[in-house]
Design a protein around this nucleic acid. Sequence first.
DNA 1: TATAGTTTCATACAACTGTTTGAATTGCAA
DNA 2: TTGCAATTCAAACAGTTGTATGAAACTATA
Lengths: 229, 229
Amino acid sequence: MHSGHDMPTDHTRAAILSAAERLYADRGFADVTLRDIVAAADVNLAAVNYHFGSKDELIAELFVTRSLATNRQRLNELKAAEAAGGGRAAIDAIFRALVGPTLRGCLGPDNERSTAARFMIRASIESVPPIRRIKNREIDHLRKFAAAMRRSLPGRDEVELYWALHFALAMAHQTIRDSERLIKLSEGSCDLNDVAGILDRIVAVSVMALTAREADKKAPARLVARDAR
Amino acid sequence: MHSGHDMPTDHTRAAILSAAERLYADRGFADVTLRDIVAAADVNLAAVNYHFGSKDELIAELFVTRSLATNRQRLNELKAAEAAGGGRAAIDAIFRALVGPTLRGCLGPDNERSTAARFMIRASIESVPPIRRIKNREIDHLRKFAAAMRRSLPGRDEVELYWALHFALAMAHQTIRDSERLIKLSEGSCDLNDVAGILDRIVAVSVMALTAREADKKAPARLVARDAR
DNA sequence: TATAGTTTCATACAACTGTTTGAATTGCAA
DNA sequence: TTGCAATTCAAACAGTTGTATGAAACTATA
């Protein structure tokens, strides 16, 4: 047992956390072993189990730490937007607070990308058991954004809000995850370094998504190709 | 070696393919072992290496088969839409052809979901090496849809087309992948069984996404919370 | 310095992975 | 039937994984 504080120079613990986060962010959970981590951290293999108990607990600690930080950042932006609007944030500001932090952390010039954000994307892609168990809390976090949307657009059908929220996350997430494909497809004409532009784009589409149903109903006889035979 | 045809009753091969596809679709590539597969298929462990050479080649065969089938299905719908429009498909019909087949295969009532479509979603999520190597061809396939969009909307900025294509796939993909979260978040008010409705929704938003930039530019001083104060 | 507690270390362990082997079994042609 | 190739099978292989162990090395208090 420790006797009081152990923060001073808990070098090993920090080195493991740092190395693990970087490796997981770069190569995913699937093919990063404890031996890879301790090699990168330059510590002994047994140190992981000594300091964290198990590999899963290491991953869980990494995830909860980053998860709390990301959520805090998003909520800060939301709070600011609501404060600026006297309790009701503009709908686009809400979307911006929702997807902005992660987008900024993951895209843009190399030197600005954060390992933390890339780690979180990995966590949301490869659903490894220790993370899956924790992830349910995210629903509560998203509910706060749904509530802010309700305040922003009272009277709007709730289902529309949920879909727009869902689509906003989908676009941001996929843009991060599959930026390579978009670059290849567009042969470089889509500028993935213009994070502000991408954010504007996603927010604009998300706002429009709120009216998808109405637009759809107004033109029910769509140009759908009559598949016929 | 075989002498001529071997299709008649190549029971073992088919059983392995079927069991593997189902297990991978249900539980992902990460935690399905060859022993799981051969147990489900009720064949001997060595049969996989005998018939396919290796685990990776089994996965690859599974993927190329399904990939070709999906692409064929999408292109059929696209062709039909272009034929109906005299060479130019309506833009929403193009999106419909792009995301419709997968959406229909993955969502909807349990008994209508196809293992094949769910397998393909897994493949697009967990990027396992044997699949990643093949996946580059998908770009060429998407290019055909980009070309169809160009024909449908000549003069439109290409970058807009790529982003809309990207967003359409993002929304469809994420809806399939994370339908559970959307259900929980909306407490069931989002009906994930209404595949046609979801498809309409995604197509409508995708079409609107084509005008995201214009809308953004026309109203640059949007409701953005003037943070100010 | 002596001593107790904490941390590191090399090493071993047990479980599991994909793959290989060589003998049994099967199916079919002569 | 006999003969032969294709297939199945049980068993073992070599490699990797996360984890456990017990001794050594520290650290700081008395």
